[in-house]
């Protein structure tokens, strides 16, 4: 009995973003994740690993170990990340945080520049998370990185103006971040495009939760955004950034070395990070910011399988 394959007639697609010195492309899909039988997924989901510009204070040992000799040297750390096979480096300017070193814009811009010069993959530059401070430092960082086609974030409803203006002027793309609310995600994308930055230079961040910690909220936001994108809602048709590492490594299931009924930490911790990432990949996530190199390896193995043709 011949089954008539059910293919959706999608009318629209996700914007395609180009990043970095190597012109890495993300997004551009014309169907839901991995449904190659009815559309194109021209670019695979990509990974980044995080570098801190100061030694991270709250990382568990299992996470520090692969970077043990470089934790206080962001440039060496970034190079190591490239060796580990991540598609991108995500530099987090933690030192600018008022609670830590309260580093100045010029100081962090210098670090960012040094890291960008040392690598040939795209650089993601992340502020310290304090919106006001990020609104001050990121424009200076954007200028210092002129021409490097970085992805800069996170722009929020509070600070998007200065970050967008500078990113636009110096050729970067921005991460638009809104807290777990699809309406706010859409609105922020609109506000940013109204400043003249085109949609193919915006990636949105719905503030994901980890496996077991509200993962289903961002999961459904991504599914809704992708359905919207494919049916003509352009304002959500941008790549999606998933801060998986940051969230997954807050979970006890990843961090706790010693809970016998959950089994040994090694596989458990990696699986927490990887499952969080793959779950968002099947919902429409595009850029995955992870922390452990083993997770990159595992995630890529998953994507290799998922990208295989399933045409009928």
């Amino acid at each position: 009995m011949a089954v008539t394959i059910a293919k959706e007639r999608w009318t629209s697609k996700v914007a395609e973003m180009t990043l970095g010195p190597n012109g890495l492309k993300v997004g551009g899909e014309t169907t839901l994740p991995f449904l190659h039988f009815e559309g194109e997924m021209p670019n695979r989901p990509v990974t980044a690993l995080e570098v801190f510009d100061m030694e991270p204070q709250d990382w568990p040992d299992i996470l520090k170990e692969p970077f043990a000799d470089v934790l206080s040297d962001p440039v060496a750390w970034a190079k190591k990340i490239v060796e580990y096979g991540a598609d991108m480096v995500a530099l987090r300017l933690m030192s600018a945080h008022p609670d830590w070193k309260d580093a100045s814009a010029d100081e962090v811009a210098k670090t960012a520049k040094a890291v960008a010069e040392a690598i040939d993959v795209p650089l993601i530059v992340l502020g310290c998370g304090v919106e006001e401070k990020d609104g001050q430092i990121l424009p200076v960082v954007a200028e210092a990185l002129e021409g490097k086609r970085c992805l800069i974030g996170c722009a929020t409803a509070e600070n998007y103006k200065s970050i967008t203006a500078a990113s636009n002027a110096y050729g970067h793309s921005v991460i638009a971040s809104s807290p777990l609310d699809i309406n706010l995600c859409k609105q922020l994308n609109i506000l940013i495009t109204e400043m003249g930055l085109s949609l193919d230079r915006i990636a949105f961040d719905p503030l994901v939760g980890a496996l077991g910690y509200g993962i289903e909220y961002a999961y459904s936001i991504m599914e809704r955004a992708r359905m919207g994108a494919l049916t003509g809602d352009k304002m959500l048709a941008t790549p999606i950034v998933c801060f998986v590492g940051m969230e997954a490594w807050k979970a006890k299931e990843a961090k706790d070395p010693d809970v016998p009924e959950w089994g040994p930490q090694a596989d458990r911790a990696i699986l927490w990070e990887v499952t969080t990432a793959t779950t968002f990949a099947i919902a429409g996530g595009t850029i995955f910011i992870l922390r452990h190199p083993e997770s990159v390896k595992r995630f890529n193995a998953f994507i290799n399988e998922a990208m295989k043709s399933n045409a009928y």
């Binding site: 859409k186 609105q187 609109i190 955004a225 919207g228 809602d233 352009k234 304002m235 959500l236």
Partner: peptide, 15 residues
């Protein structure tokens, strides 16, 4: 029928 945002009147007119 489409995802709400504050600028929905404007977005409705964009194709």
């Amino acid at each position: 029928q489409s995802i709400y945002c504050d600028s929905y009147l404007k977005i409705f007119r964009q194709k």
